[in-house]
Amino acid sequence: MSITQQYLLDTYRARQHDEAAPPAPGVHDWQVVREWRDERQFRAVLAGRPARARTRIQHAMSRRPRLVRRSTG
């Protein structure tokens, strides 16, 4: 059974019992990745190694769109 089929089955069962639907597959994936990265950095600091990864703010600032000025000709 695939993840999608299991999700649909769980959603169907939740509706039958008037319960809240479960979260869709993949909804919390990025949060899990962030928590894993934070844990890895924390363990590196405890072991005396530098935590080399960029902070979330630095990462977000590097991805922001840059304004491009058009030359008027």
Score class of each variant (00 low, 15 high):
1 M>I: 11
1 M>A: 14
1 M>Y: 10
1 M>V: 13
2 S>R: 08
2 S>P: 07
3 I>L: 15
3 I>H: 08
3 I>W: 13
4 T>Y: 12
4 T>N: 10
5 Q>N: 11
5 Q>M: 10
6 Q>N: 04
6 Q>C: 01
6 Q>W: 09
7 Y>E: 05
7 Y>K: 02
7 Y>T: 05
7 Y>W: 13
8 L>G: 02
9 L>D: 10
10 D>A: 15
10 D>M: 14
10 D>E: 13
11 T>C: 06
13 R>A: 07
13 R>G: 02
14 A>R: 01
14 A>F: 01
15 R>M: 09
16 Q>R: 08
16 Q>C: 03
17 H>P: 01
17 H>W: 03
17 H>D: 07
18 D>V: 00
18 D>H: 04
19 E>W: 06
20 A>Q: 05
20 A>E: 13
21 A>C: 13
21 A>G: 00
22 P>E: 04
23 P>S: 06
23 P>Y: 01
25 P>A: 00
27 V>C: 08
27 V>M: 11
27 V>F: 05
27 V>P: 01
28 H>W: 04
28 H>G: 04
29 D>S: 14
29 D>H: 08
29 D>M: 05
30 W>F: 11
30 W>R: 14
30 W>E: 12
31 Q>N: 14
31 Q>D: 09
32 V>F: 15
32 V>H: 14
33 V>N: 05
34 R>L: 12
34 R>Q: 07
35 E>Q: 15
36 W>G: 07
36 W>T: 06
37 R>E: 14
37 R>M: 10
38 D>C: 04
38 D>I: 09
38 D>H: 13
38 D>P: 00
38 D>G: 03
38 D>S: 10
39 E>I: 01
40 R>C: 07
40 R>A: 07
41 Q>P: 00
42 F>W: 10
42 F>N: 08
43 R>V: 08
43 R>K: 15
43 R>W: 13
43 R>H: 10
44 A>M: 12
44 A>P: 00
45 V>M: 12
45 V>R: 14
46 L>C: 08
46 L>D: 08
46 L>I: 07
47 A>F: 00
47 A>P: 02
48 G>N: 06
48 G>W: 05
49 R>N: 15
49 R>V: 02
50 P>L: 04
50 P>M: 03
50 P>E: 11
50 P>F: 05
51 A>N: 08
51 A>T: 00
52 R>D: 04
53 A>E: 05
53 A>P: 02
53 A>W: 05
53 A>H: 03
54 R>D: 14
55 T>C: 04
56 R>L: 15
56 R>M: 12
56 R>E: 14
56 R>N: 15
56 R>G: 10
57 I>G: 02
58 Q>V: 02
58 Q>N: 05
58 Q>I: 01
59 H>I: 07
59 H>E: 11
59 H>G: 03
60 A>D: 12
60 A>F: 12
61 M>V: 11
61 M>S: 09
61 M>F: 07
62 S>Q: 14
62 S>D: 14
63 R>D: 09
63 R>C: 10
64 R>K: 06
64 R>A: 12
64 R>Q: 13
65 P>T: 05
66 R>W: 01
66 R>M: 04
66 R>G: 00
67 L>R: 15
68 V>C: 02
69 R>I: 06
69 R>F: 08
70 R>Q: 13
70 R>S: 13
70 R>C: 09
71 S>Q: 09
72 T>Y: 07
72 T>P: 03
73 G>K: 12
73 G>T: 12
73 G>H: 15
